[in-house]
Every structure is written in structure tokens, then in C-alpha cells.
């Protein structure tokens, strides 16, 4: 289960709405081993940059079964800007943090808030909660969370709380400092 503060959910939603129809992406960092998302870190989607060359991709047309060769840009693909990601990674390491949540949005009319083949292939953080926000509906968004390990996707519940201090957790849980 992902337990997450309501204000952080609001940040994810606002970021995804701002970037739509491009995919938004980012991290919520927390103390190593805490499983507690605390610090909201929206990241630049390099695939949405005008000079991005496009990700070569092959997919199967669900109607005809034909192979389609395509290039993916920011509206169907995200990739952290590599320079920004190195800087953020170093900062998290110095603060003894890890990415507790890795989020991105799905914006296309046909896409559900469920991990795509590329999402599964590229999911390389075994401890992270992979959050997907669907923004195809202009009013109602869809927010779902997954664990992705060795190509296996497991959906999990999301428990939105006002503060980690009052949320029911284990006996060894450390209360929030705020």
C-alpha cells in the first residue's frame, strides 16, 4: 500500500494538468528505508523538448495486429532530463533520501492509468511506488499505484492522509516533524 499526504497528491495532479497533453513526470523523495514520500520533485520531461529526437518504438496495432514503427515524443513518452536527474540524484544521496514515489501521467484518449510495456521495461527501482495519473478526462483524473519488479506489475491501494503523524502505522514508525 502507498500511504501519501493529500498535499503531495494535489502537487502530482497540478503538475500533470499543467503538462497535459505532454506527460508529466517526477519523484517524491523520502528518507531511505522509510517508505514515506515527503519531498515533491517535479522533473523535466526531456521527451517534450522541441529538440528531442524521438524514441524509436515498435507496437502492435490492437485492431489489425500489424507492427507499427513509430517515434515517441512527450505526449506518449517521458524520460527524465539526464542532467537534472544526476543533480537530483546527488542531492537525494547527500540527504540520505530515495525515490519513494516515481510518478508520470498518461494523457492519451485511449490510455488507462495502467503501466505500459515501456513503463514495465524501464521500471528499475525495486523499492519505489510507481504512480500513474490519467488526465484524459479534463475534469476527473485517475490516480493508481503499482509495484513493478522483474516485469511483474502489482497494483496496490493508495491511502491518502492529511499527515503521517496521525496515520495508523507500525510501532516503529517515526512521526512527521512538521
Amino acid at each position: 500500500m502507498l500511504r501519501i499526504r493529500a498535499d503531495l497528491v494535489d502537487e502530482i495532479v497540478a503538475h500533470a494538468r499543467r503538462e497535459h497533453p505532454n506527460e508529466a513526470c517526477g519523484i517524491i523523495a523520502g528518507p531511505e528505508g522509510s517508505d514515506r514520500p515527503e519531498r515533491f520533485l517535479p522533473m523535466r520531461n526531456a521527451a517534450a523538448d522541441p529538440d528531442y529526437p524521438g524514441l524509436p518504438n515498435t507496437r502492435i496495432d490492437p485492431e489489425t495486429g500489424e507492427k507499427i514503427e513509430e517515434l515517441r515524443f512527450g505526449d506518449t513518452f517521458f524520460i527524465f532530463d539526464s542532467k537534472e536527474w544526476l543533480a537530483v540524484h546527488r542531492e537525494m544521496t547527500a540527504r540520505e533520501e530515495e525515490p519513494v514515489v516515481i510518478y508520470h501521467s498518461h494523457t492519451q484518449p485511449y490510455s488507462e492509468a495502467y503501466p505500459s510495456a515501456i513503463d514495465v521495461e524501464s521500471a528499475l527501482e525495486p523499492n519505489a511506488h510507481y504512480v500513474i495519473i490519467g488526465t484524459k478526462d479534463p475534469v476527473r483524473h485517475e490516480l493508481r499505484s503499482y509495484r513493478i519488479l522483474d516485469g511483474v506489475v502489482t497494483e496496490e491501494e493508495i491511502d491518502v492522509v492529511e499527515s503521517y503523524m496521525f496515520a495508523h502505522t507500525g510501532a516503529d514508525d517515526v512521526p512527521d516533524r512538521d
Binding site: 506527460e23 513526470c25 519523484i27 522533473m43 521527451a47 524514441l55 518504438n57 515517441r72 506518449t76 513518452f77 517521458f78 524520460i79 527524465f80 539526464s82 536527474w85 544526476l86 540524484h89 516515481i102 508520470h104 503501466p115 505500459s116 510495456a117 515501456i118 513503463d119 524501464s122 521500471a123 528499475l124 527501482e125
Partner: peptide
């Protein structure tokens, strides 16, 4: 030398 997952998806 720093190795990092690219953090990408579709």
C-alpha cells in the same frame, strides 16, 4: 562514474 536508471516510460 555514476550509473543511474534513466527513469522513463510511456
Amino acid at each position: 562514474v555514476t550509473i543511474l536508471p534513466a527513469v522513463a516510460g510511456g
